[in-house]
C-alpha cells in the first residue's frame, strides 16, 4: 500500500466562481459552448417534472447573490447516473447533476428537474431527496445539505429525517410545494439554520 496522503485544503470559491464554473452566465462567451449542469433531466427523462428553487440567506437575512449551488439526485426510479451506481442502470435521458448560480438580483437559484424516486440501498430506504452543495465567497468549505419534499409519505420513515439529533430542525430540510414548483430556502445561520452534513 502506498503512504496515506492528506486531502487538499479547501478554499472559498470567491465572488467570481462563475468565471470558471458558469462562464456563459458571467458573460464570457466563446470558450465553452454552454455552461455545465444546465440540463439535469433530458426531454425524454421519466418522472414528474418539477422546479426546485430557493434562496440562501446569510446571518443578516440577506440572500446570497454571488453563490453557486450544485445538485445531485437519483432518477425517478431511485437510481444514480453514476459509474458508482451498482443497483442497475439509471434512466439514459437523466443526468441527475445540475449547477446554478443564485441570481445576481433576486438571489434565487433554480433547477428544472424531475421528482427523484426513493433510494433503496443496503436494506435502507431513503425518501426522495436531492443533495445540494453550496459554495460562495465567505464559505471556506462547501456545504452539503439535502432537500426533501414536504408531504411525501416516505419522509416519515426516512433514516435521516428521523435522526434524533435533527429533532426540531427537520423542517429546514423540507422543500414546500406550490404546484410544480418546490421552494427550498437555505439559512446559513440563526434560529432557522439549515442542517448541513459531514458526508
Amino acid at each position: 500500500m502506498s503512504d496515506r496522503l492528506i486531502e487538499s485544503a479547501s478554499q472559498t470559491a470567491g465572488p467570481y466562481v462563475h468565471i470558471g464554473c458558469l462562464p456563459s452566465w458571467a458573460g464570457i462567451d466563446g470558450i465553452y459552448p454552454e455552461d455545465l449542469g444546465a440540463t439535469i433531466a433530458g426531454p425524454g427523462a421519466r418522472g414528474e417534472r418539477i422546479t426546485l428553487k430557493g434562496r440562501i440567506f446569510d446571518g443578516a437575512g440577506e440572500p446570497l447573490r454571488d453563490s453557486m449551488v450544485e445538485l445531485w439526485q437519483a432518477d425517478a426510479a431511485g437510481l444514480y447516473q453514476s459509474p458508482g451506481e451498482y443497483r442497475g442502470a439509471a434512466d439514459p435521458d437523466f443526468r441527475g447533476w445540475g449547477r446554478a448560480a443564485t441570481d445576481a438580483d433576486t438571489g434565487l437559484y433554480r433547477f428544472d428537474t424531475i421528482l427523484p424516486g426513493a433510494v433503496r440501498s443496503g436494506g435502507v430506504t431513503h425518501a426522495p431527496h436531492v443533495a445540494l452543495w453550496i459554495v460562495a465567497r465567505g464559505i471556506n468549505l462547501g456545504l452539503h445539505t439535502r432537500a426533501y419534499f414536504a408531504g411525501l409519505p416516505e419522509n416519515a420513515a426516512d433514516p435521516v429525517l428521523t435522526l434524533p439529533e435533527l429533532a426540531g430542525r427537520v423542517d429546514t430540510l423540507l422543500a414546500v410545494r406550490d404546484g410544480g414548483t418546490w421552494t427550498f430556502d437555505i439559512h446559513l445561520q440563526g434560529g432557522r439554520e439549515t442542517v448541513f452534513f459531514d458526508v
Binding site: V195, F196, D198, V199
Partner: peptide, 18 residues
C-alpha cells in the same frame, strides 16, 4: 465568513450512496 459560516455543528452522515 462572519455572516456565512454555519454556527451549528455539521451532522455526520457518512457512507450514503448518494
Amino acid at each position: 465568513s462572519r455572516l456565512r459560516a454555519p454556527e451549528r455543528k455539521l451532522v455526520a452522515l457518512p457512507g450514503q450512496l448518494g
